Lab assay of single mutants.
Amino acid sequence: MAAAAAAGAGPEMVRGQVFDVGPRYTNLSYIGEGAYGMVCSAYDNVNKVRVAIKKISPFEHQTYCQRTLREIKILLRFRHENIIGINDIIRAPTIEQMKDVYIVQDLMETDLYKLLKTQHLSNDHICYFLYQILRGLKYIHSANVLHRDLKPSNLLLNTTCDLKICDFGLARVADPDHDHTGFLTEYVATRWYRAPEIMLNSKGYTKSIDIWSVGCILAEMLSNRPIFPGKHYLDQLNHILGILGSPSQEDLNCIINLKARNYLLSLPHKNKVPWNRLFPNADSKALDLLDKMLTFNPHKRIEVEQALAHPYLEQYYDPSDEPIAEAPFKFDMELDDLPKEKLKELIFEETARFQPGYRS
Rank of each mutant, 00 (worst) to 15 (best):
N297T: 15
R359W: 15
V51F: 12
T26E: 12
L267D: 00
L290S: 06
P58F: 00
D149M: 07
W192A: 12
D149H: 04
R91H: 12
E334H: 00
E345Y: 00
F279L: 15
K270Q: 04
K300Q: 07
K54N: 14
F19A: 12
K73G: 14
H310S: 06
K114L: 13
L134K: 04
K138S: 07
G169E: 04
M98T: 03
I240M: 08
D283F: 05
K300M: 15
D124M: 08
I165Y: 09
A3E: 05
A2R: 09
L130M: 14
N257K: 14
P280A: 10
T185R: 12
Y30T: 00
L69N: 03
C161T: 02
Y317P: 03
L157C: 12
T118P: 14
G245R: 10
R261K: 10
M199E: 03
P356E: 11
A2L: 00
D291A: 08
P93F: 01
L155N: 00
S202H: 10
S29A: 04
H125P: 08
D44L: 09
R359G: 15
Q119F: 10
A3V: 13
L200P: 07
I95D: 01
V49T: 06
R135L: 13
G37Q: 08
T206Q: 12
R301N: 03
V273N: 00
V101L: 15
G37M: 06
L163K: 01
S208C: 06
K164S: 08
I86V: 01
G37H: 12
L156A: 09
S202G: 10
G37F: 11
F228E: 01
L287M: 15
I31M: 06
I74E: 09
R79Y: 07
P268L: 11
L289S: 09
K54F: 02
K48Y: 11
Y64A: 12
L146I: 02
I255W: 10
N297L: 12
K300G: 11
D100P: 03
K292A: 07
D100K: 02
L28M: 14
N123V: 07
E81R: 10
L107T: 07
G204W: 14
A352D: 13
E197T: 05
G85R: 02
P196E: 13
S223F: 06
K344N: 14
V273Q: 02
K114S: 13
L76M: 11
I302K: 04
M199T: 01
F296D: 04
K151P: 01
F78C: 10
D235H: 08
L170M: 14
S153A: 06
W192F: 12
L241N: 04
V101P: 03
Q249S: 02
R301L: 10
S246K: 01
Y187H: 04
Q236T: 08
H178Q: 14
E305F: 04
A309H: 02
D162V: 12
R261V: 07
I140K: 11
D106Q: 03
L115P: 03
A195K: 03
D167T: 05
G245D: 11
